[in-house]
Design a protein around this nucleic acid. Structure first.
Length: 247
DNA sequence: AAAATCACCAACCGCTCCCTG
DNA sequence: TCAGGGAGCGGTTGGTGATTT
């Protein structure tokens, strides 16, 4: 398979250039992609006169050269989105990145690792205690809905849960890992036409508690596990995201 | 001032999925 | 139906600048 050989590998055992990109290489790649568009990365590498693998070209374009990329620090709003979406989808960086216009999956992944992984360890012990405590206390006031998601689109219920453009309702997200998931959202299939306006901030400490309860983050990546509560709960993060998701 | 450590980020690697012939 | 190639994804590594000791 190509994965074994690397993109663009050829029978001549050509030595592909590796390491940091030079301004000249960037210029060549940008000009070529702007002229011919994305896709066919292995031919981009060849035709643009770059001694790079297609894979390398794609990565450079996506993570650095693509127009519209944001530079600079992740804002608190973006951080909030990252936290929320990671709680939903786990390490689905590319999926998360679709909801952060101008940010790349690589950027988000790096940000997560440097900012949150440490906290995860530190809070892991505390959270285990929390879990044990919660297990002994049945949830109250928690109305649940199960949404089946056999196709790739959001069900109406899920859409209702996520679309908050028309009203000002407060949507309370409640991570509840030691019970069965009560709402399951599939990964969204498209990133286009998505905008966020965060109308409120939420207590980060409360969120950490829920987020770090994940014993195994990879489990959360298979299915999105969300519980919606009808009544805002003071214990959980309560905020009013202003989503507009067009599927 | 120098060495050690930390934080950040670009880039690579290997795996998997999807499409096509 | 299946194999091969293209493409995308998540995990990991390594370089570099900043900060601390």
């Amino acid at each position: 398979m190509v994965g074994m050989m690397g993109w663009g590998a050829n029978s001549d055992q050509q030595e592909w250039r590796k390491g940091p990109w030079t301004p000249e290489e960037d210029k060549l790649l940008s000009e070529y992609v702007n002229l011919h568009g994305e896709g066919r990365w292995s031919s981009v590498a060849r035709c643009a006169g770059l001694n790079r693998t297609g894979k390398s070209c794609r990565l450079r374009w996506v993570n650095y050269l693509r127009p519209g990329l944001k530079r600079g620090h992740i804002t608190p709003q973006e951080e909030g989105i990252i936290i929320e979406l990671h709680a939903l989808w786990g390490n689905k960086w590319s999926t998360i990145a679709r909801y952060l216009p101008g940010r790349t999956d690589n950027e988000i992944k790096n940000y997560w690792r440097t900012h949150f992984k440490k906290k995860e360890k530190a809070s892991a012990k505390q959270d285990k205690k929390k879990i044990l405590r919660q297990r002994n206390q049945p949830q109250q006031n928690c109305t649940t809905t199960t949404i089946s998601t056999t196709d790739k689109k959001l069900s109406p219920q899920a859409e209702q849960a996520i679309m908050r453009s028309d009203d000002n309702n407060t949507f309370t997200y409640h991570q509840n890992m030691d019970q069965d998931p009560v709402v399951e959202l599939p990964p969204l299939t498209t990133s286009s036409d998505i905008s966020y306006t965060w109308t409120d901030t939420f207590p980060m400490d409360g969120l950490w508690g829920g987020l770090w309860n994940l014993d195994d983050h990879s489990q959360a990546s298979d299915k999105c596990k969300v519980a919606l509560q009808n009544e805002p709960a003071t214990d959980n993060c309560s905020y009013a995201p202003d989503y507009a998701v067009n599927l």
